[in-house]
Computed example of a mutant assay.
Amino acid sequence: MKELKACPECGVPDEVSQSTRWESNGTIAGLRTPGQRSLYFEVAGINGLFENIEKQVGQSVNRIIIEGKRKNTLEYLEDYFSGVMAAMVRSLGRRRIYMAIARLGAVAGYGNFEILEIKRGEHVRVYGRNIYSIPLLKGDLMAAFNFTERLPASVTMQEKEDGYLMKIEPGEKPDEDLSSRLEPVLSHPKPGDIHYDTCALCGAPAELKNWLFDLGEGTITNGTTGRRLASLGIDQVDAVLRELQAELGEDFENIILQAQRDYVKDVLGAEEMGGGKPYLRRFFALRGMGNLVSYELGDDRLRAVVENARPPLMVAGILYGIFELLTERAGEIDYSLRDGGDLEVEVAAIP
């Protein structure tokens, strides 16, 4: 795999502009991984979501998060390094395979990784900085070991200076029952009419010029808000949330909705979220979360429809937070997901 390069005009990495397409329907399609949708989400938001779930249920949910991410990343690597590329990559030797995977992680905003030691079939030692999420990264590291060594994996991590020393070695086989339940449910998005002005050189949406891709540090930062972003497989996020819901029961929906609501109110801010439908439509679409086709906000009610909404609970929770943030009133949310993928949300003020 070549060294990472970026567009000299907009700064978007070639890996992003050549393998990802922002569609007119509010989705982000993987061109080298057909059928997979991507999600760009704030790192603090996804970590806050996991932390809030654990607080509410009083137990760790890392087992589900790690296995979901391992499964998704392994599928991604097998799709990405397929055909001729697979044969070419495997002929390069293990170190180059792991370095190629580490570079893909940097592009996705997962952090900076240095391969310290490789012993075939025994272990890989890595030093990482700017890690985006501990449980998600553990899944990524296990998938890299699965892909390269063709063995099940376990990961141990130890803090060192401003990062972590990590050791990946053979582990127990994945829980087959859990893994089977984490299969993504693929959808067929509706067409849309979102227009993107694009960079004249690389074709990426012009708005991405404001996203600072620091390939050396392995981070993506929104230049306006200063918030860090990372790219995730949206189908696997959905699968993980479904499994958490099955394990945790009826209260799970409220946990997600309230976590997203609180994130909007605590972090995003009224000035940003008060931009109305034009701003919010771009907000959701640039993250790959869907196409906001209808949005009405009054003093006591918010109504919205988002086509191709994924993950639906997270989208609904953001709209819930927007209502309470902008009206400064407590609200009660009602939402429904239609068969075609339309998410209808209504938030009404509590008298």
Results as ranks from 00 to 15, higher is better:
242 R>S: 05
243 E>L: 06
244 L>I: 12
244 L>P: 08
246 A>N: 15
247 E>D: 15
247 E>N: 13
249 G>P: 01
250 E>N: 09
251 D>V: 13
251 D>W: 14
252 F>G: 08
253 E>R: 14
253 E>V: 13
255 I>L: 08
256 I>F: 04
256 I>Y: 01
258 Q>W: 10
260 Q>F: 05
266 D>W: 11
267 V>Y: 06
268 L>N: 04
269 G>R: 07
269 G>W: 05
271 E>Y: 09
272 E>K: 15
273 M>Y: 08
275 G>V: 14
275 G>W: 12
277 K>W: 08
278 P>Q: 10
278 P>F: 04
278 P>K: 02
279 Y>K: 11
281 R>P: 01
283 F>A: 07
283 F>Q: 09
285 A>G: 06
285 A>V: 00
286 L>W: 07
289 M>R: 03
290 G>H: 03
296 E>N: 12
297 L>N: 06
297 L>P: 01
297 L>S: 03
298 G>R: 08
301 R>E: 11
303 R>V: 08
304 A>L: 15
304 A>Y: 08
305 V>Y: 00
307 E>A: 14
308 N>I: 10
309 A>T: 00
310 R>M: 07
311 P>Y: 05
312 P>V: 07
312 P>T: 04
314 M>D: 01
318 I>G: 00
318 I>A: 04
318 I>S: 12
319 L>C: 12
320 Y>P: 09
323 F>Q: 07
324 E>F: 05
324 E>Q: 03
324 E>S: 05
326 L>T: 09
327 T>Y: 10
329 R>A: 00
329 R>F: 10
330 A>V: 12
330 A>E: 14
331 G>I: 10
332 E>A: 13
334 D>Y: 07
335 Y>L: 10
336 S>G: 12
337 L>V: 11
337 L>E: 04
342 D>H: 15
342 D>I: 07
343 L>Q: 03
344 E>Y: 06
345 V>Q: 06
345 V>A: 00
347 V>Y: 02
348 A>I: 14
